[in-house]
């Protein structure tokens, strides 16, 4: 069974649109995740507070998106996302923020 992931895009509070992701991100749906972040806007907010799992492939997508423009990542305290952000030092290339 493919990991379940839901994606929604909302106009952000500022100029950057917000991509809300929930569920699990892994090899099985990495392409959908990548496509979801493929917004035209140069800057992007990615709300990962509903994500229960993410692996290095997901992190890789985030790194490459950060390379295209300002990226802000929201996450939940005590989550897989937080652990991974810390380990991969994603904070070095994007703004990471606890929700």
């Amino acid at each position: 069974m493919t990991a379940s992931m839901e994606v929604r895009v909302e106009p952000g509070p500022g100029e950057a649109p917000t991509v809300l992701v929930s569920g699990e991100i892994d090899l099985s749906n990495i392409d959908r995740f990548r496509a979801a972040l493929d917004e035209d806007s140069p800057s992007l907010v990615v709300d990962l507070s509903g994500v229960t799992y993410i692996d290095s492939a997901g992190v890789a997508v985030l790194f490459s998106r950060a390379a295209r423009g300002p990226l802000e990542i929201w996450y939940e305290e005590e989550s897989v996302v937080r652990a991974l952000i810390e380990v991969t030092r994603l904070g070095d290339v994007a703004v990471t923020r606890r929700k």
Binding site: S56, V80, A83
Partner: peptide, 21 residues
């Protein structure tokens, strides 16, 4: 503990993903 569970899942998930990929 929850945080440790998350860490194990990530580490193990990476190993599995490597094997598949």
């Amino acid at each position: 503990e929850e945080s440790q569970v998350n860490e194990v899942l990530i580490a193990c998930g990476e190993a599995c993903a490597n094997a598949i990929e």
